[in-house]
Design a protein around this nucleic acid. Structure first.
Length: 360
DNA sequence: AATCCGTGGCA
DNA sequence: TTGCCAAGGAT
């Protein structure tokens, strides 16, 4: 399959590829510039920036002698501005370490600021015809479909599997063309949604096409979709001697904020269960002594964690006696001025200092 | 391994 | 309209 795959792919590329200014330039600088501009960026969006950069800085020499302010100005609006800073730093690095000549070996290319695995492979293959794969998002999608690879692509195992597969099918005599063709195929035919499989030059090699499973690829590590949680924190206050206290406990178990301290917590599965109308019942089910007054209830606060979104309200209760709970627990008496001696979640710290994000 | 960086396309 | 997503590199 290998030979015909590359043959069909490259034939298709020669006939149908978009004509872009950096293609066939053979200039490592221009290829580098285009690859950096196209990181996370569509061709349509980056094209004008590429032309502008080439005009202002025809070679590494001009770029390395530019002023950073001007470089940033030219990059303005394109986003991911560290790319511009790294590009500039990279130009100076090439002047300093490689006498101003773009290095022609993978290791040196990879060492340049802002050049990672993908960009190094792209430059090495396109500018120097070295047999390295260039694995961008397009290639990831194309290859997982062709080879029906279900290993998540955003894992070390998945990346290495794709890399190994590519090393088997890459045309080592024209790796640059092969890589560009693969990316072009991903961008124009093997699209994320509604791929144009009937126009695909290599569909006969594609397991996903044959099995009609293209929509299953690429697989990404199931990022636990942020789950919503609804908290009601009770902040009871009461006097012990002449000192005002509250209750806090050390969190345990498998949940978030393990070993941090927080207030008595009521958690519900939906926001309505914590609405004002539910409060009397909640309090009745929580405390055995009803000798408290409700001082204040906060608005709804949104707190974003990596894998969950927590909506919280804080309810301040002032007790005439020591709070007694229906369900036994390990809450401890904490003088108010001692709260900040304890490790507490950012949500609570921000609430206490008035720096939280209110939904309403 | 997880998070941040920006913008535009898309449902 | 809002919210989600996009896969590169550095930290």
């Amino acid at each position: 399959m290998t030979q015909n795959f590359a043959k069909f792919l490259i034939k298709w590329y020669s006939l149908y590829s978009r004509k872009l200014p950096w293609r066939n330039s053979g200039d490592p600088y221009k290829i580098w510039l285009s690859e950096v501009i196209l990181q996370q960026t569509r061709v349509d969006q980056g094209l004008a920036y590429y032309n502008s950069f080439v005009e202002h800085y025809p070679s590494i020499h001009e770029l390395s002698n530019a002023h950073i302010d001007e470089v940033m100005k030219l990059w303005q609006g394109l986003g991911y501005y560290s790319r511009a800073r790294n590009l500039y730093a990279g130009a100076q690095q090439i002047v300093r370490e490689f006498n101003g000549v773009f290095p022609a070996d993978y290791k040196s290319i990879r060492s340049i600021k802002g050049i990672g695995d993908y960009t190094a492979g792209a430059i090495a293959s396109i500018a120097f015809n070295l047999p390295y794969p260039a694995i961008d998002g397009n290639v990831l999608r194309v290859i997982t479909r062709i080879a029906s690879i279900s290993t998540p692509v955003d894992t070390t195992a998945g990346k290495s599997e794709i890399h190994n597969f590519l090393m088997e099918i890459i045309d080592k005599n024209q790796a640059g063309t092969f890589n560009q063709a693969l990316m072009e195929l991903g961008a124009t035919i093997c699209k994320p949604k509604s791929p144009l499989c009937n126009e695909c030059p290599v569909n006969e090699f594609c397991i996903a096409f044959i099995e009609n499973t293209h929509q299953n690829f690429p697989v990404k590590r199931t990022k636990l979709k942020p789950k919503n949680r609804y908290f009601l924190y009770l902040i009871p206050t009461f006097m012990i001697g002449d000192e005002k206290n509250t209750l806090m406990g050390k969190r345990s178990g498998k949940d978030i904020w393990f070993n941090l301290y927080d207030f008595p917590l009521i958690e519900a599965s939906k926001e309505e269960d914590l609405s004002n109308s539910q409060l009397p019942e909640i309090l009745q089910n929580t405390f055995t002594n009803p000798d408290f007054t409700v001082l204040k209830i906060s608005g709804l606060i949104k707190h974003q964690l990596s894998h969950q979104t927590i909506y919280t309200r804080f309810l301040h209760l002032d007790f005439a006696s020591l709070p007694k709970f229906v369900v036994p627990n390990d809450y401890r008496y904490i003088p108010l001025n001692m709260i900040h001696e304890l490790a507490i979640p950012r949500l609570i710290d921000r609430y206490l200092s008035g720096k939280n994000v209110l939904i309403y």
